[in-house]
Design a binder for these strands. Sequence first.
DNA 1: TTGTAAGCGTTATCAT
DNA 2: ATGATAACGCTTACAA
Lengths: 334, 334
Amino acid sequence: MATIYEVSALAGVSLASVSRVMNNHEHVSEKTKLKVLAAMETLNYRPNAIARSLATSRSDCIGILVSELHGPFYGDMLTGIESELRAASKHAIIAAGHSDEHTEKDGIDFLIDRNCDALILLVDAVSDEYLIELSKGSTPIVVVNRFIPEIAENCFYLDNVLGGYLATNYLINQGHKQIAYISGPENKQDSNDRIEGHKKALAEANISFNKSLCFEGDFLTTSGQAGIHHFIEKKVPFTAIACANDEMASGAIKGAREHQLSIPNDCSIIGFDNIFITEYLFPQLSTIDYPITEMAKMSARWILKNVYKNKSLTINNLFLPSLILRESILSNIK
Amino acid sequence: MATIYEVSALAGVSLASVSRVMNNHEHVSEKTKLKVLAAMETLNYRPNAIARSLATSRSDCIGILVSELHGPFYGDMLTGIESELRAASKHAIIAAGHSDEHTEKDGIDFLIDRNCDALILLVDAVSDEYLIELSKGSTPIVVVNRFIPEIAENCFYLDNVLGGYLATNYLINQGHKQIAYISGPENKQDSNDRIEGHKKALAEANISFNKSLCFEGDFLTTSGQAGIHHFIEKKVPFTAIACANDEMASGAIKGAREHQLSIPNDCSIIGFDNIFITEYLFPQLSTIDYPITEMAKMSARWILKNVYKNKSLTINNLFLPSLILRESILSNIK
DNA sequence: TTGTAAGCGTTATCAT
DNA sequence: ATGATAACGCTTACAA
């Protein structure tokens, strides 16, 4: 690999001049610029990103930390961010946090140590306090799918309460009164927000929340399956099920089939997130749309604006869920 | 951030000594080691990875380039690699190539410029020659889901021909003779291998390959849907469809439903890859298992062995597909 | 406009 | 066993 020294020697100018043309500095004569460019060309010169980063403590890279590297949610997230950054000629460095506090902190340190210019974080094991403290450091951060009042401007999040409300409210409007709920894990904020929306819709319709119609899942398909088994076994009557995400809804549909329950005839069902497969399930799953790609792009845009000073961008932090109607819900109005 | 200078000053030793204890060199007295460790502790010292990388031209990072950051195939791949590397305390730097030659090369350059110790590449736009040339460079590379004879040892791949054969052969054994095929794009090696296996099974059973029973898809669900529409429109009779991947099979199932075709009663169907959702489709999709996670882990293991000198690891390059039977195939034996 | 030279924070080669 | 000191390849005052 050719270095800047060789370029400067070949071009017959100083290191500084080479550096200047590399970085498009003004005040370089056309003549030296051409000489340098030519030398770079013939030497097939590629600047050493590490050396540059050491000298500037910048990197033109954005660090991204997600819980998992697989799954439709994280996949769409990553793709959204990467496409936005690539369009701005920035690179993404991606790492996984696995919803484990130590791993998440480790990943954040790794990204910071790589001199990332900013971080996009999808984390759920580290505390709010940790993130607040982190945001005071020299590496700007942005938090996705989580709201922390103290750093609200750096948060991008969905109105999960509204989403939960929308789902159950629609079921109620279709005449359902006995609505089972398969929730996400209790230790996750979005879980809790979604079920809060569910309860709100129930309350509004004067339907009391029945704890035995509630099953705590883990956002994975298998727990959706387990949920419906549970309800059937316990012989609690229900005409509809709201699930805190589409994966669990998929599991619930499968579980229903195992019990000869026909969906939506015997039981209506609604999911949450609107992941890709919802259209390919049978019946096609009604759900709540989570504009994850948009949110992902927006988080990247914040960095483009605030770190790379692209002032023209406009930012918004809150995203709204919306109802997507497909085949999995039947009216229960007599 | 504290630097090595401050540590050395506080500990009352030279830079070199600090560096030595950081890197667990032998020939450091217990006394200085303790002094240094204490100083590091109180200063909350974290070595600067960039400076270290500049000095050593290593990074303890492995670069990974995948076509896309979303989708079950790539997701599982990434997760497999990352888990294997993490267990060895190595970090992954992930980038996307988008099946575009320029973007892939750009991503590779990016990873090399980051001083990655090795690269794991899932690319399909760059040529074999390019990769062969690349493998002669100073950054070791490994290629996944692709076989290049000249660098066979660095390739990890599935026997796609066998997979294609297994699928169609099973259909034939079930009495199917009119078997439609929805292929992947013609410019991809795995597409071509899979259809080759399909043809082989046909030939073995003395069934001539009928071009009008073949539809070229693009590995996305929509093209599976388009495929079955195409066959029905053209009024070519068929009792089974083999698809070159599960996504297209999902689309085909959906398309069949739109035409009031009941699966598997009116038409059997088989996919390829055994992605997660196959179990949640209706009917559950029979398919060919692609041990993608295993392969991903193996590619990481090659690097652990050959780059980081963990000699005890054993490597194998070829992976075998296997038949997964679920609900989407019905016997057609009268 | 151009060049000199001092960093950036490590590692690694020599001496001692 | 320890300490100077020269790399590593680039950026950036500061001078000229």
